[in-house]
Design a protein around this nucleic acid. Structure first.
Lengths: 341, 341
DNA sequence: CTGAAAGCGCTTACAG
DNA sequence: CTGAAAGCGCTTACAG
């Protein structure tokens, strides 16, 4: 098949290419008769605009890129979904790049995205990204960048993160509302998010005039299921009283649930467990009450801001902390009846 | 910042743009002194090749697209991961498009991907895609297409699917090996995959001289957790004997697990349960034994074939059924001790 | 080995 | 309202 160009259309319609361009892009007034003839020629030839050739002149490709540390992570997959949706709704297409903590890959995307002329990039501010020169390089080419998800932020670009401190407060307030007073926290060492969420918990406790008990904070290496189980073991040997535990994420909470069951503490009868993220929390037994991150909003608002920047928005960059919400399920309950002593 | 073009580099190095092009693409021999000067000019100017301008002439953008019905589905997320990995390893970038069963979106991507000049597209053969003219349109522009995942295939393009019939056989053989004879199947109505997997189960049964009992096949609408529970209820009222159940997917199996527990049938002590896909099967209690789909291979091999097509491979299109494998966990056990009567 | 020139498919001042 | 022309940043015959 021979691919029709704007010139072919012009010839068939008996007009100039400028006129064809004007009707295709609706960029200038064109008289009805000519418009008609052009349209017919387009149909007849099956003409399609070549966006690449167009971009050469306009510097706009109508493409965006989204960079994540790992695509298959359900959290990012959900953000990606919102990114694609929002981009599509605004007539943009999106490249996905997974960086996997690999600086070389970050550099590959840095070079490639510039070479491909993307109009903007949304990126998770993972360490590999932040420690490379991706962002300044993009900015040197006047390609807007916005950061998203993760708790890390950067001062010189717009960032959309979930409010981890607020999430911690929310979790604790929920438990407090149920009547819990002795609330443990299990988290991951070296995780900024753990810190923030725990600070939120402490804040809520303080507001209820409860002195946070340091022996009720357990942090372990890693943030997988086994790490959650391990944290629970450590918690139990502390021998402090508690009626509820806040787990850093769903997966650790799953491990915690198993550990409690193994030790004969039934959830939620004797102990309440609450987690964060809402990834697998609907699949555990009991189903976990969790603090839901605004994954969809993160992607949607991130893209919206990116598009605004592309359109010329030059207001100062801001950090946007999006609110979380409690999704109550089966793992939490009032401690009135019985509790662990 | 002023963006350096090939002309700027040529000027600074005192050579022609043809020479710069030759060294950048390593497409022609260039004398060492000139190469040197060009390299220096490139460094000094921070020159980067504009792939769009290049593509205008070469018709190659080094981009691929991957179309899925839903990005956030963990199954496709995993395929996407392999797609991105393989593309990157071969110096390609990838657009992701989610079609969501929406024909209009399929058409958007059809037009856009052509306009953007992608070199090839990998697509899940969901109904929206197959019922649109996406594939013929792409082919008219000589853009190679390969189909992936899902059980649907098309005769005129390369397809990579997991071997559902084989997966069913595998599941049944595994149960048979454990000593089970009365094996139930719960699946989804109107699912071609259900049919294939069940056929595989029957085949394995027949090979062991076991007559498949039709009352042990339950199909329901939908394929979510609640549907799995419902299927189990229906199965129980059949009042037929069985010691194991094969569930169409992990999520239905989760529902089945709950239903069995509610009815007082403990898994795996009284009943074995096996599922397919390995999405959430590691998170259930007991952890589900499952038949793992070659999600990563699907993506990796699909892209590899696509690249071969781009490079000119014109062998006849083929359907590739990739083998599955059993991942044994806690939900299956020999029925010798006790079983449901 | 090197370069001048044409051309890839568009858009947009500019002139009419 | 319409069109001729220049130019976006590259590559590749072609000639030397």
């Amino acid at each position: 098949m021979i691919i029709a160009t704007i010139r072919d259309v012009a010839k068939r319609a008996g007009v100039s290419v400028a006129t064809v361009s004007a009707v295709v892009n609706n960029s200038k007034p064109v008289s009805e008769p000519l418009r008609q003839r052009v349209q017919e020629a387009i149909e007849a030839l099956g003409y399609r605009q070549n966006l690449l050739a167009r971009a050469l002149y306009t510097k706009r490709t109508m493409t965006l890129a989204f960079l994540v540390p790992s695509i298959e992570n359900p959290f990012f997959a959900e953000v990606l979904r919102a990114v694609e949706e929002t981009a599509h709704a605004n007539n943009y297409s999106v490249f996905v790049g997974s960086t996997n903590g690999d600086r070389a890959k970050v550099e590959f995307y840095r070079d490639r995205l510039i070479a491909l002329g993307v109009d903007g990039v949304l990126t998770v501010l993972s360490w590999d990204v932040v420690s490379s020169d991706l962002i300044p390089a993009l900015q040197a080419y006047e390609i807007p960048v916005v950061g998203v998800a993760g708790s890390r932020t950067l001062p010189n670009i717009d960032c959309f993160v979930s409010d981890d401190f607020g999430a911690g407060e929310q979790a604790a307030r929920y438990l407090l509302g149920l009547g819990h007073r002795q609330i443990a926290f299990i988290g991951s060492k070296d995780s900024q998010t753990t810190v923030l969420r725990y600070e939120g918990v402490k804040s809520a406790l303080s507001k209820s005039d409860i002195e946070p008990d340091p022996s009720l904070l357990i942090t372990v290496d890693g943030y997988e299921e086994a790490d959650g189980s391990r944290a629970v073991s450590e918690l139990i040997v502390q021998n402090s009283e508690f009626t509820a535990v806040v787990a850093f994420n769903d997966v650790m909470a799953l491990g915690a649930l198993s550990a409690f069951e193994d030790q004969g503490f039934s959830v939620p009868e004797r102990l309440s467990v609450i987690s964060f993220d809402d990834t697998i929390s609907g699949y555990t037994r009991p189903r976990l009450t969790t603090v839901v991150c605004p994954k969809h909003d993160l992607g949607a608002k991130g893209v919206a801001k990116l598009l605004a920047r592309i359109e010329g928005d030059d207001s100062p960059p801001q950090i946007h902390k999006l609110p979380t919400r409690i999704l109550a399920r089966e793992s939490t309950r009032s401690p009135w009846v019985a509790h662990y002593v």
